[in-house]
């Protein structure tokens, strides 16, 4: 139980996928203009990331390793992730057309979100069980969503603040992202094992 909690904490806060590992920066800057769309993007990515990491673990353990074809890992993982994203897109379109409109091009782009693929690769490098992989994916997705929503809140306030003219728009966003990353360095003190 303790281990599971540590995996969740470690992936969500200490080794945060965006601010510490620097994966998935495209949606981090792209969909963080409004809190609503950030929450939607976070949920969609959570769904994809959790499932992708677990399915890729299953694929690695029960197909690639027994057949000794680990060299096909990247190809097989990308295939799984692309199919999952396609499925998510259909589901979101059916369940919430408004969210589908808001997310726009970023929804199919989850396929190329390196956070998903990166986490799937990092996961199989560690001696995780299936449940631990599930938690690993879910924890990193939680961290991604948390940072995305936090940053969207910051940017909503930044839009109203009086920023020096040089920094208006994206530059102040990058500075805020840097400060947020600095703040997350504080979690390094948490025990992860």
């Amino acid at each position: 139980m303790r281990d599971y909690l540590f995996i969740l904490l470690g992936t969500a806060l200490v080794n945060n996928v965006v601010l510490v590992r620097f994966l998935g920066l495209c949606p981090f800057m792209g969909v963080s203009n409004k809190v609503d769309s950030a929450v939607g993007m976070g949920l969609a990515t959570t769904f994809v990331l959790t499932l992708a990491v677990s399915i890729c673990w299953l694929l690695e353990r029960y197909v690639l390793i027994p057949l000794d074809i680990q060299f096909l890992r990247i190809l097989a993982f990308i295939l799984v992730i692309a199919a999952l994203v396609q499925f998510t897109e259909m589901f979101v379109r059916k369940a919430s057309p408004a969210l589908y409109q808001v997310l726009g091009i970023y929804l199919p782009l989850i396929t190329t979100n390196c956070a998903v693929f990166g986490m799937a690769l990092l996961n199989i490098q560690q001696p995780h069980s299936l449940l631990e992989s599930l938690l690993f994916g879910f924890g990193s997705a939680l961290g991604f969503t948390l940072v995305l929503v936090l940053f969207a809140g910051l940017r909503e306030r930044l839009a109203l603040a009086s920023v020096p003219e040089t920094f208006v728009g994206a530059p102040i966003g990058f500075i805020a992202a840097g400060l947020l990353a600095l703040a997350f360095m504080g979690f390094v003190g948490l025990p992860t094992r």
Binding site: L59, L67, L72, L75, V80, A83, F87
Partner: peptide, 23 residues
Amino acid sequence: AVVSLTLLGIALGWVLGLAARYL
């Protein structure tokens, strides 16, 4: 390698085809 990847592609395509029908 060929067979496993082909089977994987077929399985995923089948799932997506079903999803496209029901969703």
